[in-house]
Design a protein around this nucleic acid. Structure first.
Length: 454
RNA sequence: UCCAGAGUAGCUCAAUGGUAGAGCAGCCGGCUGUUAACCGGCGGGUUAGAGGUUCGAGCCCUCUCUCUGGAGCCA
């Protein structure tokens, strides 16, 4: 008999004569002559309650159907006479598939996120993590839909790279060498030192300068010793790159993108979102609604500095033109001043990387960051420097060697075009859209300094 | 990496420097169209690790480890 997903059984519009469901026991309650068995198969948040009379084949195994065990139940889907669920399964047969040792760590009651992180192999069976990873899947799909519908070409930029997207962070070395690897770069597998990518941007630019609009969506690695709730050593980044596009168009796309994913979450992940709203972040639904409906605020870096100065607030770090905005500054702007996502643009040249286009003032570059309440920076992007002379000048300004970026420079030699793009951390977006406060909880198996279990 | 806090039963937490406990989970039994079911009973501990102070340390001191929150770096 074909198995019916519990998701589909619960969504039935009429009784079903003979179905088979399979899943993991969430809880069992025994009554006189029969048992209530709640099965969850992860296809949706809800579980299906099966009524198993003592006489049905397989009932002898009921004693083993404790929380965590796997089982298959066949029977009739009928309206439930009691409150709590619309449908229930009147079992005709029970089949125990896998016993669960009494040491099964997931209980029916709530667990702390810290404890669940220590059982990464079992936490997807919990309500919260099931919801998180179903949402992650749907939003990953929505990312592709968003770009494909707009004629963006998906490019698989390399994971192993020999180029450094400067400013992005520390890199993991990839090597087959043993011993002191620094002295023997030429002997290495690729004939030179190689690393895990920190960004696909430079490669994406080459494809944008051929296919017009492209995007990447893949794993990204940073070897920084960052110990925060919003940093991971391995994460997924989305990087659109558009030819014939300026900073304005870049900011438009970034805003449109965040709004589209928020809308998608509201419309397609409503059940799971309701769980987040109940247990993780009470204001989640209203915030997403707000993000979808209202335009993002846009301020230049100079204006942002003025706002911070005029705020009368005392910050731990100084607010001064030419200094980077600190977390506390970004949070003030998005959480207290504007109460909405904010796009800050035109940053001082000296605090941004070499590839950003120099503005006519000679002092600022076309950088833009999208800040959202609760998370801070979720997008960083820019219009790229497309003028050969200016790029070479910028490389030397940042003390980088043009020959190390020869192919990147070549793009400016052969039919250069204005182009722009941004990078968005998929996990940070997930945190924003689910309300989950720690990046370790939106990654199936998080890699952080000192931690790579599972 | 820096600052602060925490670590006691499988889980969540108690315990003035003086006999380590409870609820839940598990096991056994009872009751019941139940639904974080309920009632009774039982088992469960190197108090993160190492060292020190003390007649006596879960508690005080030192070091180490792990986790959490904040900061830096960033997405």
């Amino acid at each position: 008999m074909k198995r019916t997903l519990i998701k589909h059984a619960l969504a039935a519009v009429e009784p079903l004569e003979a179905i088979t469901v399979a899943g993991w026991v969430r809880t069992r309650r025994d009554a006189k002559g029969f048992s209530f068995l709640e099965l969850n198969d992860g296809s949706c948040l809800g579980s299906l309650q099966a009524i198993v009379d003592a006489g049905v084949p397989g009932y002898a195994d009921m004693a083993h159907c404790i929380t965590g065990a796997s089982a298959e139940v066949s029977g009739r889907l009928v309206p439930s006479p009691a409150a709590g669920q619309k449908w229930e399964l009147q079992a005709a047969r029970l089949r125990l598939l896998g016993k669960s040792d009494p040491s099964y760590p997931l209980q029916k009651k709530g667990h702390t996120l810290e404890f669940l992180r220590t059982i990464g192999h079992l936490r997807p069976r919990s309500n919260l993590f099931g919801a998180i990873f179903r949402t992650r899947s749907r939003l990953a799909y929505a990312v592709h839909t968003f770009f494909q519908e707009r004629d963006f070409v998906y490019v698989h930029t390399p994971i192993i790279t020999t180029s450094d997207c400067e400013g992005a962070g520390e890199m993991f070395r990839v090597t087959t060498l043993k011993g002191n690897i620094d002295d023997q770069g030429q002997a290495d597998f690729f004939g030179r030192p190689a690393y895990l990518t920190v960004s696909g941007q430079l490669e994406a630019e080459t494809f944008a300068c051929a296919l017009s609009n492209v995007y990447t969506f893949g794993p990204t690695f940073r070897a920084e010793n960052s110990n925060t709730a919003r940093h991971a050593a391995e994460f997924w980044m989305i990087e659109p790159e558009m030819a014939f596009c300026d900073l304005e168009g870049d900011m438009d796309l970034a805003e449109e993108f965040v709004k589209a994913l928020a809308r998608h979450a509201l419309e397609e992940c409503a059940e799971d979102l309701a769980l987040f709203g109940k247990f993780v972040d009470k204001g989640l639904h209203d915030r997403l609604q707000f993000v979808v409906e209202r335009p993002f605020q846009r301020v230049s870096y100079a204006e942002a500095v003025d706002i911070l100065r005029a705020s009368g607030k005392t910050f731990e770090y100084p607010v001064e033109y030419g200094l980077n905005l600190q977390s506390e500054h970004e949070r003030y702007l998005t959480e207290q001043h504007f109460h909405s996502p904010v796009t800050v643009f035109n940053y001082p040249r000296e605090i941004k990387p070499f590839y950003m286009r120099l503005n006519d003032d000679g002092k600022t570059v076309t950088a833009m960051d999208v800040l959202v309440p609760g998370i801070g920076e979720v997008i960083g992007g820019s219009q790229r420097e497309e003028r050969l002379d200016a790029l070479l000048e910028n490389l030397s300004y940042h003390k980088l060697r043009p020959e190390d970026y020869w192919w990147y420079v070549d793009l400016r030699k052969y039919g250069t075009v204005p182009h722009a793009g941004f990078g968005l951390g998929f996990e940070r977006l997930l945190m924003f859209l689910t309300g989950v406060g720690n990046i370790r909880d939106v990654v199936p198996f998080a890699r952080t300094p000192g931690s790579a279990e599972f």
